[in-house]
Write a protein that binds this DNA or RNA. Structure first.
Length: 336
RNA sequence: GGCCUGAUGGCCGAGUGGUUAGGCAACGGUCUGCAAAACCGUUUACACCGGUUCAAUUCCGGUUCAGGCCU
């Protein structure tokens, strides 16, 4: 018998977390997070991870020692190959109890490990299978629309190959476009300027001999979808409020902590939004310097004048507003 | 009271006698391996009244408002 699955989708700051907890308590359900950044250990404040219950035990910058045996942690940290790490961590995925509710797919990998749709899908399905066997209802909550869509519609993402990818990355965008146009004109035209997608589409063709759009063999999942919507002005006001709250609760310090722990600025920037903006901002501050050992020297406090802080807030607001808009578009048009 | 300068779309900001920058914000969209990302599209104007002209946002006169200077 299939467990009852409820999906809660909504833009950032729309109140998903609260809704999911309430609902999960009502149903006696477990929660699966569908958030592409909350999968990372150490990204707490900036992602709005519901960490209040276990945070206090968290001494290491990114591994919660209560949840992962120390010996294992050491092994993970020594592992060279990131796919090896991913596989190893897979069996150690933590389950957090937050307000008595089990939470899955938070803190599953270390920073700087690439984690993609396929990785998430694999785990989400495994967890779902386990809960199903127990007959336990599930609430999937997320802001990452693609993850929700993939789970709901049963994506089997086409294969990938690092070697093929590498050779394609060397080509100029126009070249990729031309090659793809010959074999998959539909995708080529649609993504004409989008290098990233052109490369992926060509990779798919080279690996399967078929256009990307012919790959979709989906087996949909039945679930109830709850979409949270708020009037724009209200949503933006909530976002602005939350930016202030998070700055208050140490979002900047969190980024500094990650840098101190050895997480690269480049990777933080690649996370986008809060992490990119704050990292860039820190690097602009005069008294914040990265030494050659790649560790930042942070003199007590990053002193800034009001104007600079205002500039930071303005940047955060602008980008997160735009992000929320993108999310809403996606949820509206893609998540049927 | 007199003189000068200015008045451009939600904001900033060019410019021109006729094809009417740009940026930001706002809004819509694309989407099966970086989705945090990447990419595409749309909108609103020349303060007001009159004149010159085939044609005025652009030239002329006046009005209003704003800023500056003078008595």
């Amino acid at each position: 018998m299939q467990s009852k699955i409820t999906i809660i989708a909504g833009p950032t700051a729309s109140g998903k977390t609260g809704r999911s907890l309430t609902l999960a308590k009502q149903l006696g359900a477990a929660i699966i997070s569908a958030d592409s950044r909350m999968v990372y250990q150490g990204l707490d404040i900036g992602t709005g991870k519901p960490t209040w219950e276990y945070r206090q035990f968290d001494r290491s910058p990114w591994i919660n020692p209560r949840l992962v045996p120390t010996s294992e942690v050491t092994i993970l940290r020594r592992a060279q190959d990131s796919s090896e790490v991913k596989k190893a961590v897979h069996n150690l995925d933590p389950v957090y109890k937050i307000q008595g509710i089990d939470h899955y797919l938070l803190d599953v990998v270390q920073p700087e490990i690439s984690f993609t749709l396929t990785d998430w899908l694999e785990r989400a399905r495994r967890v779902l299978g386990g809960l199903e066997r127990q007959g336990k209802p599930v609430v999937v909550i997320g802001g990452t629309g693609l993850y929700l869509k993939a789970l709901l519609q049963g994506f089997q993402p086409p294969p990938t190959d690092p070697l093929v990818r590498e050779s394609l990355e060397k080509l100029a965008t126009a070249e990729v476009f031309k090659k793809l146009l010959a074999v998959d004109p539909l995708t080529a035209q649609r993504e004409k300027n989008n290098r990233r997608r052109l490369v992926r589409a060509l990779e798919i063709f080279e690996l399967t001999g078929q256009p990307a759009s012919m790959q979709h063999k989906n087996t949909p999942l039945s679930a109830e979808i709850i979409k949270i919507t708020l009037p724009r002005t209200e949503l933006f006001a909530r976002i602005d409020q939350r930016i202030n709250d998070r700055l208050e609760s140490g979002m900047i310090e969190e980024v500094i902590g990650l840098l101190v722990a050895g997480v690269s600025a480049a990777w933080l920037k690649s996370l986008g939004l809060e992490y990119r903006i704050i990292t860039n901002w820190l690097l602009e501050q005069q008294n914040f310097q990265l030494t050659h050992s790649n560790l930042p020297s942070w003199k007590g406090q990053v002193e800034v004048d009001k104007k600079d802080k205002g500039e930071l807030v303005a940047r955060l607001q602008k980008e997160i507003h735009a992000y929320a808009r993108r999310q809403e578009t996606y949820l509206r048009t893609q998540l049927i």
